[in-house]
Simulated assay, not measured.
Amino acid sequence: MSPVSPLAAPLRGVVPPVCTPLTPQGEVDTDALARLVEHLVGSGVHGLFALGSTGEVAYLTDAQRAAALGAVVEAAAGRVPVLAGVIDTTTARVAQHARTAAELGADALVATAPFYTRTHPKEIAAHFRDLRTAVDLPLFAYDIPVAVHSKLTPGLVRELAADGTLAGLKDSSGDEGSLRRLLVALGGREGRATGPAPHFAVLTGSELTVDSALLAGCDGVVPGLGNVDPAGYVRLYEAARAGDFGLAAKEQERLVELFGMVDCGPESEMGRSSSALGSFKAALWLLGLVDCPATARPQIPLGEAAVAEVAERLRAAGLVPTR
C-alpha cells in the first residue's frame, strides 16, 4: 500500500467537524446541512470532517449517518475533501461503515481505536491495518482517549504513518506533550518533509491551542467551534503559515473567549457534551444557518437563559445573531 494520499499531501488547514442539524423530530435536516456546508466552504475551510464527535456520530443510526454524509458530499461538490467518520466499537463494524462511506463518495476515512473493551497496542495496530486493507481510501486515526479509553502513543502512530497505514491523525487527546513528541518523532517542525512519513498530516483537535500547535509543526486543526466561526480559524491558520504568530495569537485569544459558550449549559441540569454541542447548535440557529438547535437524545437541549448567553458570546466575538 502506498503512503501517498490522493488528498493534499499532507492534508493542511482548517477542517471543521461538521455539525449534523436535526429536525424537531430528531431526523437529519439535509437542507440545513447543505447550507452549513456552503457557509463553511465559503469561509475558506480546507476540508470537512463529517460524522465526527461534533457531528454526533455516536448518537445517529446507520441510516442517519448515511443521510448526513451523503448530504455533506453532495454539498461540498468536490471543492474540498470530505473525511468521513466511521467510528464504532469493532473492526468489522467500522469496516462496514467504511464501505458505506466509500460508496457515498467520501475522500478519506477517520477511525478511532476499537473500544468498549480495552485493547492492546498490537490489536489497535491490526485494527487500523485491517481497515486500510478493507477499503482503499486514506485513513486518519482519531485519538480521543476520553471516549475510547485508549491513548495512541507517538511510537504506534509513527509506525503506522511510516508504513502507509495512516494518512494522518486528529489529536483530541488533550496531551500536548505526547503530540509534541509525535511531531519530533516525525522529524520536528523543520524536518517533517524529509522525515519517516512526509505525507502524514497531524491535525490538532483543540480549539484553544491552535496557534501553539501550528508553531510546533502541526498541519492544521479540526475545530468544533469552526462550525460557528470558520473564518476566524482560517485567519488564525493563515497568520500562522505566514509566520505572524502575534496575529495568530490575537485571533486565538478571541476564539478562546468565544469557546466559553460550551459552558453555558448549567452543570446541575446537563452533561458537558450536551452543553458543548447544544451551544454550537444554538449558535448556528442564532446565526440563521440551521432551522432548529435540537441535539440527539439523550442529550438535553439548552434552555432560554443558556441560549441568551450564547448570543452574548457571539456578539462579543463580532458575530451578529440574526435571531
Rank of each mutant, 00 (worst) to 15 (best):
M1A: 14
P3R: 07
S5F: 03
S5T: 14
P6Q: 11
L7S: 10
P10Y: 02
L11G: 05
P16A: 10
P17F: 05
D29Y: 03
L33P: 06
L33N: 06
V37R: 04
V37E: 03
E38S: 15
V41N: 12
G42K: 02
G44C: 13
L48E: 02
L48Q: 04
L48D: 01
S53W: 01
G55T: 02
G55K: 05
G70C: 04
A75Q: 03
R79Y: 04
P81Q: 07
T91L: 14
Q96S: 15
A98P: 13
R99C: 04
E103P: 07
A106H: 09
L109Y: 04
T112C: 08
A113I: 00
P114V: 05
F115L: 06
T117Q: 13
R118F: 06
P121C: 02
I124E: 02
A125P: 00
T133L: 14
P138S: 07
F140Q: 06
A141G: 03
I144W: 01
P145H: 08
V146S: 15
G155P: 01
G155W: 01
L166P: 03
A167W: 08
L179R: 15
L183V: 10
L183T: 06
A185Q: 12
A185S: 14
G187S: 07
G188P: 12
G191D: 01
T194C: 05
H199W: 10
H199P: 02
T204L: 06
T209D: 11
D211Q: 14
L215S: 12
C218I: 08
D219H: 15
G220H: 09
G220V: 06
P223D: 10
G224L: 06
G226R: 05
G226F: 03
P230E: 12
V234F: 07
R241F: 00
F245T: 08
E253V: 02
R254V: 14
R254F: 07
L255N: 10
L258F: 13
F259A: 15
V262H: 14
V262T: 15
V262F: 15
G265H: 04
G265R: 07
P266N: 11
G271H: 03
G271T: 07
G278S: 01
G288C: 12
G288M: 10
C292W: 03
T295A: 12
T295E: 07
A296L: 04
P298F: 01
G303C: 08
A308C: 04
L314M: 08
A317D: 08
L319K: 06
R323L: 13
R323Q: 13
